[in-house]
Design a protein around this nucleic acid. Sequence first.
RNA 1: UGGGACGUCGUCUAACGGUAAGACUGCAGACUCUGGAUCUGCGUAUCGCGGUUCGAAUCCGUGCGUCCCAGCCA
Length: 578
Amino acid sequence: MTPLIPHPPAETPAAPSNFIREIVLKDLDTKKYNGRVQTRFPPEPNGYLHIGHAKSICLNFGLAAEFGGKTNLRFDDTNPEKEEQEYVDSIIENVRWLGFDWKEPDGTERVFYASDYFDQLYAWAVQLIQSGKAFVCDLTAEEMRRYRGTLTEPGKESPYRNRSVEENLDLFERMRAGEFPDGARTLRAKVDMASPNLNMRDPVMYRILNAEHHRTGNKWSIYPMYDYAHGQSDSIERITHSICTLEFEDHRPLYDWFIEQLGIFHPRQIEFDRLNLTYTLLSKRKLLQLVQDNLVRGWDDPRMPTLSGIRRRGYTPEAIRNFCGAIGVSKTNGIIELGLLEHFVREDLNRRAPRMMAVLRPLRVVIDNYPEGDGSVDELDAVNNPEDASAGTRKVPFSRVLYIEQDDFREVPPKGYYRLSPGKEVRLRWGYLITCTDVVKDEQGNVVEIHCTYDPATRGGNAPDGRKVKSTIHWVSAAHAVDAEVRLYEPLFTKENPNDVPEGQEFTANLNPASLEVLTGCKLEPSLAAVQPFERVQFERLGYFCADPDSAPGKPVFNRTVALRDSWAKIEKREKGK
RNA sequence: UGGGACGUCGUCUAACGGUAAGACUGCAGACUCUGGAUCUGCGUAUCGCGGUUCGAAUCCGUGCGUCCCAGCCA
């Protein structure tokens, strides 16, 4: 058998196949497009890209790359009322950040705009009028809806359907010239008002919109509809496989119809299932609402599923790409567990994030038998990343007064707890073995400080006599600590399906009031003082964190990307549940 | 009650008429200076009912269920 893939790049891991890839493989085999594979990613610049778009981006760019083809970035900017340059800019930035590129060897970029094709689209519309396949309709939106019929009843033909070609041409030209107010007329395709597919019931091709377009300004008073613009744009760009989401399945007959009437290059539209994630909303409209109503701090709020938000949260492009590869492509509408996305960030960050020590909820610890004074600072060696020897080591200062995590001390330890408690010995990471000797409380009985002794013979963490401790905990020297703000995140919604609301309520009813917790006065080891925005680290035993752009010199702010898997938390929860 | 699409472990995906496989999750254990990581073990899940076939997740029929469509949005 002849291999269908002529020269698979050696370093490309065998991508798990999917039905679209199979179609491409078959087309390649039958030379349907002369062995050419060309895709496009066609966002409307009316919002920020989210993780659902990442799936489409990876699919489109991945497929073309695998077969030596090209992928165009094309802005589907046919509705000036919703589109803005800000969105164009963010989309370009996000796709680049994800790791994809559309530059030709000669340096030109494969960035296109549907608005670049307005002249050609107009000429084609004239052609359809001339061949009797399109007409100017004076029905109002309300009338048109009534004429359209219903799901079970056929529609009625517009009384304007049989206008002469001359009249249509004249009217259409005047629509273009801006003679009519918004909504006064439309140009419609003459297809079939009795079609069971509503998209075929004389669909609108152009509407009058006296609006300023972010690229074409006031040149146009009419704008093409998606159905009229998309397929022809694909055709102009010689796209071979036009991949879109399932809800466009019903539009495919129309996509094909226009192209056939025009007799132009015919790309193939293929539909796949859009990404759904538990506890996550992936609807531009609703995300926009969250931003506009200040329910989040903006498009790049780390709780947002936007690429900008996810990036600020600390996710890596690699993790997202791996995730997109792992979820596969099919036509079943499923819902992916958020935990799978988290798995891929942990997997990636575990390999590359340097380990640091940070105490989020500090508890003061005094080592009573450790010398006092300035001269008594010990510089201990700490491994930067046990998964990566090349990451090296760093020095961490140790002194008489330290902070440990409040969670790492219990005056009365519950069953199975093997961290610090009175009389118990634990190891301080990269430091000494210490034993708790005393507890200091305030008037309310809260533990405010504990006293310990250390074993000088255990410097570095190991006891010469070979005795073992059950637990190693992280710590920070009080005198050297850097104060920081740390933002902890939980899912934005309390329900797996945020749209699952009682009658009459909105999805915002499912907003999680505890999705953001801001911790101040957190104590970081001094090597974190000069951290740069977007730097990612693991705070040992806590999770992966990413420095926020809000960080100021000497005043770092961190976002928790994702917590470490925590089997003790799981045990504790189970015990409490009993 | 029109049309289009889809039903495989808890979740996602594979198996393309020939032993239902993988990932995530979960559980149990090993190991460990992160209760992390790593490693090992644990899975009768093909929507139901008929049919074709030596053999059906796969083909046919039928029933059921889910999703999408009545914007001058994309």
